[in-house]
């Protein structure tokens, strides 16, 4: 069942069913990424949050060429019980933020959530100390694959500030797309401001 876990199938179906879900422009400049976090975009992105029906409610999703080619997930102010990917049925839960997570549990939360999006062979690598909006966090890279075998690379950062979780995860095909937008993503990561 190769198409079973295609990450975007559900988003596209939702778009078709809802009809009114719209993608909006996110022009260069300040971008309010939910409550409590602001980033600066160096170019025009699309805010595809409304069509990404799998995302958790405190997660915004930006893209340049469409979600299969580059997707920037920005989660702001997650509290215990919140998720990055939402669960549709009780019997198939998705990873939840918990109170008092250890640093490795925060990384596990990110990588298990990326797996819950439908990516295969998700591997979080090179965790390293970094700042997110001035708060101590962990920067990491990701390797994964789509079900169909397309290689995916990712990078991101996660930090907990006063019991709330802030994170950014950028995912794109390893061939061309990841590298093409990486400088822009790096400057977005560096621009994050936590306001919550």
């Amino acid at each position: 069942m190769r198409f079973v876990t295609r990450p975007l199938a559900a988003a596209l179906v939702a778009l078709a069913l809802a009809g009114c879900a719209t993608v909006t422009a996110a022009p260069a400049g300040r971008f309010q990424a939910g409550a409590g976090q602001e980033v600066t975009l160096g170019r025009m992105w699309s805010d595809i949050t409304p069509i990404m029906i799998n995302r958790g409610k405190k997660v915004r999703v930006l893209s340049i060429d469409g979600p299969l080619l580059n997707a920037l997930y920005v989660g702001s102010g997650l509290v215990p019980g919140d998720n990055i990917v939402r669960s549709y049925v009780k019997e198939r839960p998705t990873p939840l933020m918990r109170a008092g997570m250890s640093a490795s549990e925060r990384l596990e939360f990110v990588s298990d959530s990326v797996a819950a999006m439908g990516y295969q062979r998700v591997e979080l690598v090179r965790p390293r100390a970094a700042l997110l909006g001035g708060a101590p966090g962990v920067r990491f890279d990701l390797n994964a694959s789509t079900s169909e075998g397309l290689g995916i690379k990712g990078t991101g950062v996660v930090a907990e500030v006063s019991g709330k979780l802030y994170l950014t995860v950028y995912l794109a095909p390893a061939e061309h797309y990841f590298q093409a937008s990486l400088p822009e993503v790096e400057s977005i990561l560096a621009s994050a401001r936590i306001t919550g």
């Binding site: 069942m1 079973v4 990450p7 559900a10």
Partner: peptide, 9 residues
């Protein structure tokens, strides 16, 4: 479907 609801058509 039960196992992967939300991810499939």
């Amino acid at each position: 479907m039960d196992a992967t609801r939300g991810l499939i058509d």
